[in-house]
Nucleic acid binder design. Structure first.
Lengths: 357, 357
DNA sequence: TAGCGCTTCTGGATCGATACAGTACGCCGC
DNA sequence: GCGGCGTACTGTATCGATCCAGAAGCGCTA
């Protein structure tokens, strides 16, 4: 039989409450008695108050949940996700809370719902989950603080988020390329369509994106708007969907664009990870980035600098840290619950003027 | 007032137990009633059984804890740790469990102890934590399954671990270099001494390592044994401690060895991350890896292949997956609770024969 | 129609702690 | 000597569910 508070209380000859206080409110009892209690606990092998029981009574768990779309196991593959998580972790640590990673598998929606139901947490952080995912409703119905790691297209007055102006940032990429003279442009992005396949897709416009992660739509909208400054219309864009947000699929997707007869002079990738794949695809074809084909990414992960990738820098760790802080200590002021972070266009060697032949 | 099981039960006019069954054992009641209950729950905004209360009663939480030495926020910086975590995550996901990351800050030992006490989990996975860390005792006293992500030097009969034969693997590195003729050898490692400083250290032998992460000691022992085959004695080794397991500190540490008058012909790093730093240090000094100075790592992280680093390959993801499986479903057979994985010496361009001048 | 087995539902006990109101007691000032 | 006050500790109610023994209802058989 495992020892409980009562076991220790009986051994010392005090009440259960007093033992509880010895752990949770040491100032409520005399040092002598406290020591006696701790001594008895050691002797009996009592590990301290049971976290579950304590949580139930206190109504506080001491952990925050992070929801991921992709299988939990992929959470660690995207450097940007890792940086974000690190920020969340920093906040949680400062607050003495743990981080519960909650799988939200795509194949089995019911499993995700169950996971959210069962998650013992004080709040949820939602990272790149499509707005339609059923688990989100469950998350909301739990009535816990919830912060989105991106700006919802239509933020409610009391919703919390920390994000960037995706469209505006993407616009700077588009207009950068437009100014460099690019007119034949391809875009490589994941989540353009609901299926996980890699290949060209045709869309009537950004609003036609059938998979409802707002980030994708907004970035595409921004790209298009920026490029329009150079007279590039939506129908001029060659869109390739990438099955997953990975370097390998980025390379595969880029192939569809690069192997065309009228090869684009610029390839815009929606994440750095995909962009690195695009660079790989250039390399295997003997094409020079920034010279033969310009390439851009998004996020400015550490590898981007080394690869000389032009990209949008957004403060990933800080974003996570703020998300964590919002969750653990939601500000009274509704305005403070919605945070927009600044972004910068970082121009590196992977973009250059289009060649005049 | 938030709705509870009772609220729903009253609304439908059944007992609390029946509502509970509607969620947890759907086969125990008629489909009609079950639907009625779910309908009422929806109407009342009841999110399903409270995870905390459920855990208390069931005695099962549905999450496993992962303990880290370094601050939680660094858990994501070492690619090897990330791979391992991914494996653990895969197992947890399959089992419908979450992953609770538990910070074990080094500065504030008490905070770590508190974190372990408060962690609502069904088991702990310990990853690279010094055997002396006070939080480990607390972990054990919780009486939960516990699996170490490395082989303890003296495994108890009932302890669980998944690891590799560190010393044997390291020995192959040492003898590889010995065979290539290397006699002036430096070793770059973190955790050689308790302090977090970067610089040369003097030790009487592997057993003299004052920081008790067994892995460090065992790998060093292996290096030494392998090198001894070429007649290199312990006192011939130039040891440099790295403040942290990072690329930058690896480069700094390597500097101490490379800038000596009698520059070593080989530098053995205890992790790939440090080894990449050593390669950086070579590059800034215009030295050729494998030609001027041979360099080895340990772990075979993805970047190692790209860098042409000779290293020890160990199955990181699989290691994590097995750790997770051991935790969630401890085998009856004690022998099956202790898993040793195979390793390979992967020879790449970063090692070569010592130059005869 | 009594007896049996099966499904469906009930109600009290229980998981292990914390909150809070209350008691006991010593000490101070007047 | 007594009210007032602070400190140290107690005891009961409570958090929100699950477990389990048992009751009710129902069909079937002998």
């Amino acid at each position: 039989m495992k020892p409980t508070l009562q076991t220790v209380a009986d051994a010392v000859g005090v009440s259960r409450s007093t033992v509880s206080n010895a752990y949770s409110r040491p100032d409520q009892l005399s040092p002598a008695l406290r020591e006696k209690i701790h001594e008895a606990a050691r002797r009996l092998g009592y590990p301290g108050p049971d976290p579950t029981a304590r949580s139930l009574r206190r109504g506080r768990v001491g952990a925050i949940g992070v929801l991921f779309t992709s299988a939990l196991s992929y959470a660690f593959t995207d450097p940007y996700a890792v940086l974000f998580l690190r920020g969340v972790a920093e906040s949680a640590e400062r607050h003495g809370s743990g981080l519960l990673l909650v799988p939200l598998s795509e194949a089995d929606e019911q499993a995700g719902i169950e996971a959210v139901r069962n998650a013992a947490v004080d709040g949820f952080c939602v990272y790149c989950v499509p707005a339609s995912h059923a688990a989100l409703d469950v998350t909301r119905s739990r009535g816990l603080p919830l912060v989105a790691a991106e700006r919802p297209v239509e933020p409610g007055p009391d919703s919390m988020y920390v994000g960037i102006d995706e469209a505006a940032a993407a616009r700077t990429v588009g207009s950068h390329l437009a100014r460099l003279g690019h007119r034949r442009v391809a875009i490589v992005s994941d989540l353009l369509v609901a299926e996980r396949r890699t290949g060209p897709v045709a869309l009537d416009g950004p609003a036609d994106i059938r998979y409802d992660v707002d980030v994708t739509r907004e970035r595409l909208r921004g790209f298009a708007e920026g490029l329009a400054e150079g007279g590039v219309g939506w129908s001029d864009l060659f869109l390739v969907n990438a099955g997953t947000n990975s370097r390998a699929e980025g390379a595969r997707a880029a192939g569809y664009a690069l192997d065309r007869a009228d090869r684009p002079t610029a390839v815009l990738a929606i994440t750095d990870l995909l962009a690195l794949g695009v660079l790989d695809a250039l390399a295997t074809r003997g094409l020079g980035p920034g010279r033969d084909v310009s390439v851009t990414g998004f996020d400015d992960i550490p590898e981007a600098a080394a690869a000389g990738l032009t990209t949008i820098r957004q403060p990933a760790v800080e974003k996570g840290a703020i998300a964590g802080r919002l969750l653990l200590d939601p500000p009274e002021d509704p305005a403070a619950r919605q945070v927009l972070l600044p972004t910068d266009l970082v121009v590196r060697a992977s973009t250059g003027p289009v060649e005049r032949k």
